[in-house]
Design a protein around this nucleic acid. Structure first.
Lengths: 143, 143
DNA sequence: AAATTAAATGCATCATAGTTGCATTTGTGA
DNA sequence: TCACAAATGCAACTATGATGCATTTAATTT
């Protein structure tokens, strides 16, 4: 099983002409193990053996290549999640809902919810949308 | 005219039981002079005579009191805009569209556009929404 | 299988954003 | 105008993020 997912990540790196290195595979493993986006501080804590700068650089190339996307939470902290589909280099399509829990601060990517249509004022040309919601998540509501 | 707007700001501070000080009135003047949100770095540059820490504290109380609201741009930089209406202490209603130009990086608050309705997955309880769009603004399109 | 090379990592260093504690100043109400 | 709370300024600190350069490592070639 670990082998299958590992192969999946290696394939992903191949696809984008990136070397299959330990730190990169580890980032992908960490992020895919969670059902929410991972904050930069969390990632940094999870990857103690990897240099801080290396982590930043990995996150940057992954974002450029369209492997992950970046979401800022209510505190302005960077969070990262693996793109589900149709993201290309320098062109992200994360037009779904990002839900930020005000209790546990987790960021959920609700990919199933596509955005409703709406019009922009004249003169504005948009090429990307994201809807943010804040409130309490299922886990925190239960208590 | 300057006197009228100055009175308006003083009234605003009175309303929220905040002392009418120079730095606070200056922040309000700076922000209201623009039709876009103002970034923290810009504000810092505009208020050279005011201490950096004081600026942070002013922005924080203003946000708590519902006088301004904070928007993060595509780079995760904090931007601030004066709330148009119905914002109360600790309860912001900035449920409008924030447009971030990818050329000039300006953040526009398009207050006239209210959000279309949509449903959340079961378990999620939302109390705030914001729609972000990125693209090119009227000014940058003209060129 | 060993050598080569470009890419990736690690380290030192720097810049900016934001916070906290404390002394000093200033606005406001008595 | 006096007194006091509130606000500002200053020093110091933490965290995030970027850059330059030396070293290591993955992939390619022989």
């Amino acid at each position: 099983m670990t082998e299958i997912t590992n192969n999946r990540f290696e394939h992903l790196l191949d696809l984008h002409h990136l070397k299959k290195t330990g730190p990169r595979l580890k980032v992908l493993a960490m992020m895919s193990a969670k059902n929410t986006a991972t904050s930069q501080p969390d990632l940094e804590g999870l990857m103690e053996d990897v240099d801080r700068v290396t982590l930043y650089r990995i996150l940057n190339v992954f974002e450029e290549k369209g492997i992950i996307h970046k979401i800022f939470d209510l505190n302005g902290t960077a969070n990262y999640a693996i793109c589900t589909s149709n993201c290309q280099e320098h062109l992200h399509h994360d037009e779904h809902l990002h839900f930020n829990c005000i209790v546990c601060n987790k960021v959920y990517c609700l990919n199933d919810l596509s955005l409703p249509a709406f019009n922009l004022p004249p003169g504005f040309k948009a090429d990307g949308f994201t809807l943010y919601a804040s409130g309490t998540c299922p886990q925190c509501n239960r208590k």
